[in-house]
Design a protein around this nucleic acid. Structure first.
Lengths: 198, 198
DNA sequence: GATATAATTAGATATATATCTAAACTATAT
DNA sequence: ATATAGTTTAGATATATATCTAATTATATC
């Protein structure tokens, strides 16, 4: 999930040694042994930090004979910083909402498949329509909240008795993310969107 | 020192629970108990995370009766992200170099106080001139490298026999940062600058 | 004052991680 | 093929930290 990427990005930058490495690399490529000397650290320690920085795509490497030269990956440093701001301020949500001028199908699905009391009469069989109905329900969940399976079931029941199917559909279409019995809303960027279905 | 601030900023953002808290706060203020419920965590855990976020100036608080409401501090989230990019890419260094058009005094100090072999004839008594001489020497050290006291002494000796005094001056004027027997160059923004001396 | 509610602090525990030494691996050079 | 130099992996250790429960503090209401 996307949260983990942002966490890893900040973890990579949350150690003074790794920041020093990036500083040293900002002047150009440097090889492992030189880094170890400049930082007064052992080579294995440099390898360890380099691995973390590489996982976060903050540096890249080039091998020349036995020597591995490390260099910055400037785009990713910038991209990571922007992604994390965007995540926190949920910029993606507003952007997404502007992108759906085609509301007629949506309106018709909401009118025809949901009763006045809010219940879902039946799960739409047509793919597009099903996505619209699922999204309508899932939007009533709160971003950032971690739900238990039981809570998700209780949430779905007022809409439809077959909560297990709907719960599975939530996951299948990337509306939610599941990790050891806990459920969490994905950011809208990850949802399967009916607007994108040709 | 400045490095620690950046480290703390990223540490604050390198935990999934804290990112979720920021997400929840992005929609407006929320009180502690509500956060605990939404995240399925105990109140003390929320307090713990709130403290970290507050230390990094990412959130602020408002108290109403017994209830503490947390809210985002958007400027600091942005500022921290920019500071860390600036640090990594050392933008500050270039900026600083453009800002010193008054090179005549500098030239004269370098000519008169340093011998052809590079040794410092004597430590300038006049404040401005002393800063110029110190900065000239300190610029030959490498940013990001951690030096032992012994290494600093050995570095200074070719310039002047009284390395202890000069080492102390490096610290006093913020050219370097010292932490349990280890020395490290500060970023130029922190140096006491002779251009700024009226 | 007594009681209730929200928050914090203290203390315990389990996991994560930064660092080291020693060993293994890899690519070149002799 | 053997040696050498740089790097990586494995394993150990010490510190940091995320979480909990229980106790304490702070504020408000009766």
């Amino acid at each position: 999930m996307q949260l983990d990427k942002i966490v890893n990005y900040h973890k990579a930058l949350s150690d003074p040694t790794r920041l020093r490495i990036l500083l040293l690399l900002s002047k150009g490529e440097v090889h492992g042994q030189a880094l170890a000397e400049k930082l007064n650290l052992s080579q294995p320690t440099v390898t360890h930090h380099a691995a973390k920085l590489r996982e976060a795509a903050l540096i890249t490497e080039r091998r020349d004979k036995n020597t591995v030269y490390f260099m910055l990956n400037p785009e990713f440093i910038q991209a990571g910083s922007e992604a994390s701001l965007k995540f926190i301020f949920s910029k993606g949500v507003e952007d997404m909402e502007k992108e759906s001028p085609d509301t007629s199908l949506k309106d018709s699905v909401l009118r025809n498949f949901f009763a006045k009391d809010g219940r879902l009469r039946q799960i739409p069989a047509q793919y597009k329509k099903k996505l619209i109905a699922l999204q309508y329900m899932v939007e009533k969940l709160e971003p950032g909240v971690v739900y238990t399976e039981k809570e998700i079931n209780e949430f779905i029941k007022p809409f439809h008795e077959d909560y297990a199917t709907i719960r599975r559909e939530f996951i299948m279409h990337q509306f939610m993310y599941r990790q050891n019995e806990h459920y969490e809303l994905n950011p809208p960027e990850l949802w399967t969107h009916w607007e994108n279905v040709k």
